[in-house]
């Protein structure tokens, strides 16, 4: 899952980026409101973590602008103010959820997973497909009831495919989803991950559509 993080505080931003990456997300972090605002319009994100107390362009105006342009990506707002008014203003401006500082990383993860799940139309936390069961929160994958060890990128790819069943995903869109702009991506990285997934979860879970991409069919 690719997350856009807009947070001006260097220690918090750095912590959330590193933490979420350890939890399997790919994260692009911007400390400037204007850059962050542009980033969402340039790349395909699954969710946004937006700090309201930005010194440059304030979080609420960024959010309002996105929604006005028709961006439907789920937004989790972070606020240091304890008062209810700010949260209400955030939710009314189009935020999907909020977290008050100080918060735990695990909570950010849980909220993001819930937001992504909801935006994909799923209602249960576990995603099931044939013999595969995937839990987005603890990032564990089971095949025929047995746990399978997948690398973070493989897990991210599996999650992406599971959330976009019956849709053809191009190699480029997969790359943009599971890698952030900071990552070095080798040209055949996606093919390697698909190969590993097939080895671990069965040859036919993903179909290759020549020259177009990959699909996970029901």
């Amino acid at each position: 899952m690719r997350i856009l993080l807009i947070e001006d505080d260097s220690l918090i931003g750095d912590g959330i980026k590193n933490g979420l990456e350890k939890l399997g997300f790919s994260v692009d972090w911007f400390s400037d409101g204007d850059d962050g605002h542009e980033a969402l319009l340039q790349a395909d994100y699954d969710a946004v973590v937006l700090d309201l107390g930005l010194p440059g362009r304030d979080g609420l105006s960024i959010l309002t602008n996105w929604r006005a342009r028709g961006c439907k990506v789920p937004v989790l707002i972070l606020t240091a103010r304890g008062d209810v008014d700010e949260r209400i203003a955030g939710l009314n401006s189009g935020a999907d959820d909020y977290l008050g500082k100080p918060f735990a990383l695990k909570e950010v993860q849980a909220r993001l997973n819930a937001l992504i799940r909801r935006s994909s139309g799923l209602s249960t936390p576990e995603i099931k497909y044939r013999e595969i069961t995937f839990n987005p929160q603890n990032r564990k994958t089971f095949f025929n009831g047995k746990e399978v060890t997948l690398s973070p990128k493989e897990t991210a790819l599996l999650e992406l495919l599971l959330l976009n069943r019956n849709k053809v995903l191009s190699k480029e869109s997969i790359e943009s989803k599971i890698y952030s702009w900071d990552d070095d991506v080798s040209s055949n990285a996606v093919e390697v991950h698909i190969h590993h997934l097939r080895k671990k979860l069965g040859k036919d879970i993903v179909k290759t559509i020549n020259k177009i991409g990959y699909i996970m069919e029901d």
Partner: peptide
């Protein structure tokens, strides 16, 4: 309180990263 929440969040988040 507002100003103290941010540094506390930073400490908490960095600590969690270390734990992970």
């Amino acid at each position: 309180a507002h100003e103290l929440r941010s540094p506390l969040t930073a400490l908490k988040v960095q600590l969690e990263v270390a734990q992970m």
